[in-house]
Design a protein around this nucleic acid. Sequence first.
DNA 1: AATTTTTGTGAATACGTATGCATTTATGAA
DNA 2: TTCATAAATGCATACGTATTCACAAAAATT
Lengths: 341, 341
Amino acid sequence: MHTYSQKLNSNDVARRAGVSQATVSRVLSGSSSVREETRNRVLAVIEELNYQPNAFARAMKTSLSGTVGVVVSRITNPIVPEILLHLANKLTGHGRQMVVWNTDTEGEDGVVNAIRQRVIDGLIFTAAGEQSAAMQAARKNGMPVACINRHITDPGISQIAGNNLEGALTIADYLVSAGRKRIAMINGPLDRSTLAEREAGIRQGLAAAGRELPEQYYARSEFAHDKFRDLAIAMMRQPSPPDAIACGNDVIAFAVLCGLRAEGLDVPDDVWVTGFDGIEMAGWDVFDTTTMKQPLDAMATATVEALVDSIENNETEPRMVRFATELVIRGSTANTPYRNC
Amino acid sequence: MHTYSQKLNSNDVARRAGVSQATVSRVLSGSSSVREETRNRVLAVIEELNYQPNAFARAMKTSLSGTVGVVVSRITNPIVPEILLHLANKLTGHGRQMVVWNTDTEGEDGVVNAIRQRVIDGLIFTAAGEQSAAMQAARKNGMPVACINRHITDPGISQIAGNNLEGALTIADYLVSAGRKRIAMINGPLDRSTLAEREAGIRQGLAAAGRELPEQYYARSEFAHDKFRDLAIAMMRQPSPPDAIACGNDVIAFAVLCGLRAEGLDVPDDVWVTGFDGIEMAGWDVFDTTTMKQPLDAMATATVEALVDSIENNETEPRMVRFATELVIRGSTANTPYRNC
DNA sequence: AATTTTTGTGAATACGTATGCATTTATGAA
DNA sequence: TTCATAAATGCATACGTATTCACAAAAATT
């Protein structure tokens, strides 16, 4: 038999330690100096009674909850859990919790309420949403915000992302220098800054080689596996199909590979495929996708640091960080060496 | 120019509406009866001032936060985001928020603290963890708990899962009746009830057909893509390789398919493969995996209902629900019709 | 009309912590 | 030793809500 841990408060601790409640509070928050001996006595009682400070009372006084919100657009997009994993690890390291909102299916009401009620100390955006209700609510309520893997025009907000333009330039150069003649691109919505920047990089890279991205080698659709798959099929059924398809990200590349497989085409013999992001699945044999790897771990670290500094130290200077990406060559392109200049 | 929404409290509303603070509280919580006219007047002022009740103060009084915790083992396992998506939707429908802990990399300290401090009203377990620190802490602190997609021996906890045994029996019957002669199984850790139950189902199903699962056709490893992949390769290199591999779940099946592809084997000509779960990716062309689909949406609904009832209505009777699964036949097995008896 | 019951409302209090202010104790300089 | 200064601690209060108790008014019952 056991009893639920009875509700203790700092007064109980204070009484037993022979100090005032204020001292207990000071020991816990470390805000003010407490004599070594007194501190140890209090800590011993806390240990002995198994006392846990009341998070709500603390939050009410400080207006800080220790919780950070994360807004994602589609949690089932495989890159999202990878990002969430890193964010959660970093936040845990700061003694913070993570609330997740999936705006795709939930809508934004939940986040907006949380912002207005300030039940979170700060917000991380993975989803686009420059003009989203959540972003506007955050701005209006003066809530610290950081964006990971997205660029927005507001210069007052910390933004941590990979260098998509440079990465895409490298991909274009890699494909051109490997002798690909008819390079195509399949991309997703351009209101996602990552995809827009990568497309710009591919176009720019081709132009630098005196090439271009002709209309019939370019296709774009909203974000849906089957749509990308069908675009790939349609593209390869053209009279003169491309011999390389650069995709806006790995997930698009997977869908394209599915389409090619459905058409009975061989990769890389018939056509090369490249992705972008370097998510785990890209290394699986069935995909084996050449990709541009983003350092998600470092990006998550930077994002959390920026946000936490903004929360704890009233740091107002936004941080704009671009991380270098790394070309990972795999079987979806012939195994040719490539020296990045 | 704008100002941040100034901090209002229920006293401000009360004053402006010409009532007492208690009445404002009653209007908001709906706990007690308020005259129609008074209520409307208060609501009008709330609207006018754009007042938001303070969630922390409310939480302190009621000892309820409106937040539910979800414990997952590995958020990057593709079935996890699918489950989280459904859970989040249902929780949002109940006006609740979701905190996620990924015990694989974060450890359990975060959850345990949250439990002890009661910053969450209830907890949903996706991860195993019958003997986990979090589960024990939840029990010790009398926190409402529900398990989805996992079975634990504690009969005092609501458990919602698919009928793994029946589903696996069906798979075995399907493979046998389709004429597969050498049926193998590749599985993950048996301390995951889902995998254990499915293995039992396969064995039982084979036995019912007068067959068995010989040692050389059975392999198991911890949960890691490469391990499953290598197990598949090793199994197919045997003198008399199997002509069908039943996998503990879809993700294992994906790894097996990767191994088969690496070996240059054809599916389903050389060997059939089945998964279990029916996650989205199983329908992608590169996998095209025959699987046993679990009704995750319904399962999530049942889980959240059980937990919320337990929280709000002090419902103590645990709910044990098993959902029927559905065989989805795809290209990883020859497209033979199957009549489930 | 007189009584009982119900309904609506206000005053006061408690939840558990952090912190400004006042006070005591320790420390160091003269 | 004496005084000035710094460090350590206690007292009291505020954070914003929910809720008990008391009471008045209205409704229902006799």
